[in-house]
Each structure stands twice: as C-alpha cells, then as structure tokens.
Amino acid sequence: MRVGYKPGGDDDLEPDWLTGDPIWLDLFERWLAEAVEARVPEPNAMVVATVDTDGAPSTRTVLCKGVDARGVVFYTNFGSDKGRDLERRPVASATFPWIAMERQVHVRGPVVRVDRDETLAYWESRPRGSRLGAVASDQSRPIASREALRDRADEVERRFGASDDDGPVPLPDGWGGFRIRPTTVEFWQGRANRLHNRVRATRTDDGWTVARLQP
C-alpha cells in the first residue's frame, strides 16, 4: 500500500495502491473492512450480472460469502435463473456499491463451481432457518401463492425439525457456490464534477497490469 494511504480518508485513489498477490486483493479487503467499520448496510452485498444463451443480461443483488486469491464466492440454488445462466455461460460480473462512501469495486471473469467440501462447510455455518428455507424453495420457479410457499416451509420444518438439536439439515444436491475468478477488477472513487478516480487491474498471460482510466 502506498505511503500516505489513509483508511477511509480523502486521498485520491492511485494505481500504486494496488499491491500484493493477486494485486487487487489487499486494497479490496481494506475497502471492505472500512465499509464494515462505517456501518454501510450489507457491506458484502454485490450486484451480480449473468448472461443467458440469447445474450440477454440479468442482474440481481446477492451476498458475497468469501473473497480470497482465488476469487469472489456466492451461493445459490443451481436451478435458479443465475444458476442456469452460469451453467450455460460461465462468466459473470459483480459490483460492490458502497455508495455512502463514494466507492465501488467491479469484478468480472469466468465462473467455476465451489467444491462440495467448501460448500458443505459454508452450509453448516448458516442459521438453521436459512438452511430450511433453501430446502423448501425451488428458487426462481413459479408458485401459486405466499401461502403455498409457507406450506412448503412448514413441511420441511416438520421433516427436519426447527432446532439444531433435531439433527442436521442435509445439503441439497442442487445447491452450492460459484466463484468468480477475476480477470478484471476496477476500483472507483467518487469525486466532484464527475472527475472520478478509476483504477483497473487486468490479468494477462504475464501477470497483472494496472492503469488509471478516465471517468
């Protein structure tokens, strides 16, 4: 990190703030930690875009559940709209919109499934109600009414129990994680008169390159 960087400060974003391996990770983790410290609502929320087989884009907000050198992870039902899109066209972009701090981070690249052991570890860390809800929901599929959805949730709760003392809630075969493996990571910092700071890291065959972009 460059000399003079002030967490949460007003310094202008510079390309030499990006250091480490991979080059984007250190600054991303700092900005995420600062968003948490600033009490930005849902600081790990990101807008994920996928593309269907006709080339039509679709976006939705999901929660990031892991970031490391391998990429950015989120979990979903594989039969959901985004799950089906990613199985057919395994590329995605994600934007972390920390608007209150005048910051954004944009990530894009190919997508791979998270392995089963890692998915199971995350599944078992979720609140029981979230696990029961995931079992009850055929995500993105039509349902007749809210009452019908509640009936399905009640049936799943009767089957597995409402308490952790009732035993495990099995991980569904059709549920798991996707990891975006970044080829591009862009940091955006808002400034007056639309003279925003944009710094983009791009992965090449020879490693990462970093450039300042015009706003």
Rank of each mutant, 00 (worst) to 15 (best):
S58V: 08
M46A: 13
W31E: 00
L27W: 07
V40F: 12
D52Y: 00
A56C: 13
M46W: 03
L27G: 02
G55R: 06
P41D: 02
L32K: 12
A45R: 12
W31F: 07
E29S: 11
L27T: 10
D26F: 08
R39Y: 01
P22T: 13
L27R: 15
V51S: 06
V36G: 12
E37H: 06
E34I: 08
P41I: 03
A38Q: 11
T59K: 02
A38T: 10
P43H: 01
T59F: 01
V36N: 14
N44Q: 10
L32G: 00
V48H: 00
V48S: 02
R39D: 10
E34M: 10
P41K: 13
M46I: 12
A49T: 09
E29P: 06
D26P: 00
A45H: 11
G55K: 04
V47K: 13
N44L: 14
R30N: 02
V48D: 00
V48L: 13
W24R: 04
R39A: 12
C64P: 07
P41C: 07
N44H: 13
E37D: 05
A49M: 11
V36M: 12
P22I: 09
P43V: 00
L32A: 05
S58Y: 02
V47I: 08
R39L: 10
T59Q: 13
P57H: 09
D54P: 08
P41Q: 04
P43Q: 02
P57K: 15
V47E: 11
P41E: 01
I23T: 06
P43D: 03
V47M: 14
D52S: 07
I23R: 15
R60C: 01
L63V: 08
V47Q: 14
D52L: 08
V36Q: 15
T61G: 09
A45V: 05
L25T: 12
T53I: 12
G55M: 01
N44C: 14
T61K: 05
E34S: 05
C64A: 10
E42W: 04
A35L: 13
D52M: 08
L25C: 05
E37R: 15
P22L: 10
G55V: 11
T53E: 08
A56L: 14
R30F: 01
E29N: 13
P57V: 09
D26N: 09
A49H: 03
D26R: 14
S58D: 06
P43R: 01
P43N: 06
R39S: 15
A49I: 07
L63Y: 06
L27A: 07
D54F: 00
W24I: 04
E37L: 05
